[in-house]
C-alpha cells in the first residue's frame, strides 16, 4: 500500500505497465524532459529512454495518427493530449480511424491504444483548458472511455487501459491530480468498465464521475446531516456505461441525480436518465434530475464557478428530487 496523489498514482501505473511490457510507449507534447505540463510522466524518460517516452512534435493528429501505425506494428502506444480542449485536431483520427479499424478489418487489426486526456475545469486557466468533452467521444462506437476519481483507480485504470486490446480514452480529472489516496498495488479493483457504489444510502442516488465524485460525496454527507441517506455511484466507465449498477441503486432508493461537469444538453447524464427510465420506471419516485454545465462555451476563469456544478447545485437537485 502507498499513499499517492492521483498524478503520482498515474505515473506509477504507467511505469509498471512499461516495466511489464516492452511494447508500451508514451507519446505526447512535453512529456519527456519536462515530464508533462502536470508532471504526470516525470522521470519516465530518464528511466525508460527517449525511444519509449517520445517528446513529440506539436500536432495532436500526428500523435494519435502515428500511434495508429505503431499499434499496427505491435506497440501499445499511450498518447497524452495536453489539455481537453486540444484534442480536437486529433478528433478525426480518434473517431474515423482509431475507433473503426478493428471493425473495418473484420477483427484482424486490433488497436490497443490509450489516449490520456486531462479534463475538467475550476483550475483557473484560459480558454480550452477546462472542458469535459467525454460525450463527444462516447457517441462513437469502437472507443472505450474511463475516468478515475481516486488514486487507486488511477493507478490501475492506466494499466488496464494499456492492457486492453481496444482503444481506451482515459479522462483524467486534472483538478484532482493532487488528491491523495491509498493505492493497493497487490491487486486491481476489478473491471475498469464498471461503476462502483462508493457510499451506500437508501433515499436517493447520485451518479457522478471524475472530478465531481468528491462533490457528490460531500453532498451525500451534507444530506446526511438533514437525515437523508444518499447513495453515491462513481460511474468510472463512460463507455460502456454500467447501467445495471445504477438501476440496482435506483430500484433501492427511488431517486436519481446525475452530476457532471460537461454541459447538460447532449451530455452523458441524458443517456443515463433515459436508460434508467426505461429499465426502472416503476421504481422512480421522482423524475431523474441532471446537474451539469450550461449550454455555453466554457467561461473565463473569473466566473467559472457559476458554470461548473458545485456542492450547492448538487444539494439543490437533491432538494428538488425529495420535493416530489
Amino acid at each position: 500500500m502507498s499513499r499517492l496523489t492521483i498524478a503520482k498514482a498515474i505515473t506509477a501505473g504507467l511505469a509498471r505497465a512499461m516495466d511489464e511490457d516492452p511494447k508500451v510507449m508514451l507519446m505526447g507534447e512535453d512529456i519527456g524532459s519536462l515530464g508533462g505540463v502536470y508532471r504526470v510522466t516525470e522521470g519516465l524518460k530518464a528511466r525508460f529512454g527517449a525511444h519509449r517516452v517520445l517528446d513529440s512534435p506539436l500536432g495532436e493528429a500526428g500523435i494519435v495518427g502515428t500511434a495508429v501505425g505503431l499499434a499496427q506494428r505491435g506497440y501499445r502506444p499511450v498518447c497524452e493530449i495536453q489539455f481537453d480542449g486540444f484534442v480536437f485536431p486529433a478528433f478525426n483520427q480518434i473517431t474515423t480511424q482509431v475507433a473503426k479499424l478493428h471493425a473495418r478489418s473484420e477483427g484482424r487489426m486490433k488497436m490497443p491504444m490509450t489516449i490520456r486526456i486531462p479534463y475538467g475545469g475550476v483550475i483557473g486557466s484560459v480558454e480550452h483548458h477546462s472542458e469535459s468533452p467525454e460525450a463527444l467521444f462516447a457517441h462513437t462506437a469502437g472507443l472505450r472511455i474511463i475516468t478515475p476519481s481516486n488514486a487507486n483507480d488511477a493507478y490501475w485504470m492506466e494499466q488496464q487501459a494499456i492492457a486492453c486490446d481496444d482503444p481506451v480514452i482515459i479522462f483524467e480529472p486534472k483538478r484532482r491530480y493532487w488528491l491523495k489516496g491509498e493505492v493497493d498495488e497487490s491487486a486491481p479493483p476489478g473491471d475498469p468498465f464498471s461503476a462502483s457504489v462508493i457510499r451506500e444510502g437508501r433515499d436517493a442516488t447520485i451518479v457522478a464521475w471524475g472530478p465531481l465524485v468528491p462533490v457528490a460525496l460531500a453532498a451525500a454527507n451534507a444530506a446526511a446531516e438533514d437525515g437523508r441517506s444518499v447513495e453515491v455511484v462513481d460511474l468510472r466507465s463512460i463507455s460502456p456505461i454500467d447501467i445495471d449498477t445504477i438501476t440496482a441503486s435506483v430500484r433501492k432508493t427511488g431517486r436519481l441525480v446525475i452530476a457532471h461537469e460537461a454541459p447538460t444538453f447532449g451530455g452523458i447524464g441524458g443517456e443515463i436518465a433515459a436508460r434508467v427510465t426505461e429499465q426502472a420506471f416503476y421504481s422512480l419516485e421522482a423524475p431523474v434530475l441532471r446537474v451539469g454545465a450550461f449550454h455555453l462555451p466554457y467561461p473565463p476563469a473569473a466566473v467559472e464557478e457559476h458554470y461548473v456544478p458545485d456542492l450547492d447545485r448538487v444539494l439543490d437537485a437533491l432538494d428538488r428530487t425529495f420535493a416530489y
Binding site: H51, V68, G69, L70, Q72, Y75, P77, M109
Partner: peptide
Amino acid sequence: NLYTVVLGSQAPHAVGYAMGTALD
C-alpha cells in the same frame, strides 16, 4: 493496409508504422 477514405488519414499511420520498424 486497408483503404482509407478520409483523405490523408493514412499518412500518419504509415509514418507511425515506419517509426515502429525503426524502434524494432
